[in-house]
């Protein structure tokens, strides 16, 4: 009986690790291929058969930094990183604050018109981006906004309904007793909100923010339209779309890959660091509260 259980456990552990490794490879491989491509010159990219590492025609390992050098050749790209960070951060902050307020009401308070509000908020995000673009452009022109605020405001169309809905779902799951006991203790509803609700749903809050951040970071169509006449405000996706080859029609594929690598790695690292800090901070708050 005992050996059987042991076999079972070994089998279970092995299976678990196989699953882990499969997930790793699946998630990472296409990105690895982008990294691999980013270190290849055009001739190496076109080589048949393709190689797992950048190699020259004799088969020697020969990575090239040419793509990275061209990515950083002019300030456009670095400025793009700055702009993207700014716009995505502001978008996330705004969407989280405004969204969590609304979610508090929608998830935990009782009031008339709750369902219509929920549906209305969701309906705002149901159109494809191209369709709303020209109307949005008119709104932005009327408001007389410059490029960066225009992007932040227009990104609300897809981030705000998202944060509101996700947070509403999570708030709703929290037992009512927690809030009631806080109210009995004399806490105002608002205190209950930021001292109890927020810390308890910290993982959801962080995840929602993260997903919203990346959605804003990746947006292309609105950004292209709003930043054309203001090149100083261009974000990463726009900067990449403006990568030109040596001559017209020539597409610098290696450079695009290098740019993708350069912008992805820091995002992932930053997000990880922040995530840990924020979760820790919020959880600590909960313990204190």
């Amino acid at each position: 009986m005992r050996p059987a259980r042991r076999v079972e456990r070994v089998f279970g552990t092995t299976l678990f690790w196989v699953v882990v490794i499969v997930i790793f490879v699946y998630m990472l491989f296409p990105f690895y291929w982008a990294v691999n491509s980013s270190f290849k010159t055009e001739a190496q990219l076109q080589m048949t058969p393709a190689t797992f590492l950048p190699r020259d025609s004799e088969g020697n390992f020969a990575p090239s930094l040419i793509n990275y050098r061209s990515v950083f050749r002019d300030g456009q790209f670095v400025r793009g990183i700055f702009n993207s960070t700014l716009v995505a951060t502001a978008t996330t902050a705004l969407a989280l604050v405004v969204g969590s307020f609304a979610a508090f009401a929608l998830g935990k308070l009782r009031f008339r018109g709750k369902k219509p509000s929920l549906y209305m908020i969701l309906a705002m995000t149901m159109f494809p981006q191209v369709t709303v673009l020209s109307g949005l452009y008119a709104v932005i022109t009327t408001l007389g906004l410059t490029a960066r605020p225009s992007m932040i405001l227009s990104y609300m169309i897809f981030t705000l309904p998202f944060t509101t809905w996700v947070l509403t779902a999570f708030f709703k799951e929290l037992p009512v007793e927690i809030m009631q006991s806080a109210w009995v203790d004399g806490a105002t509803p608002f205190q209950t909100f930021y001292m109890i609700l927020l810390p308890l749903t910290a993982p959801a809050l962080v995840t929602t923010g993260l997903l919203a951040f990346i959605a804003a970071w990746n947006e292309f169509l609105f950004a292209l339209t709003f930043t054309t006449i203001d090149p100083g405000a261009r974000t990463i996706p726009v900067a990449i779309s403006l990568f030109g080859g040596l001559v017209a029609r020539h597409e610098p594929f290696g450079e695009i890959m290098a740019a993708a690598v350069v912008v992805t790695v820091p995002v992932v690292l930053l997000v990880l660091i922040f995530q840990r800090k924020i979760v820790a901070g919020l959880t600590a708050g909960a313990v204190k509260g």
């Binding site: 227009s154 705000l160 509101t164």
Partner: peptide, 27 residues
Amino acid sequence: EQKLSYKLIAPAIIVLILVAFYPLFQV
């Protein structure tokens, strides 16, 4: 509670009406 709720969802509704209402209506 009702009053508080309206105050809380007001910002979200205002922002969305500001950016989304006209484009959607136009579509």
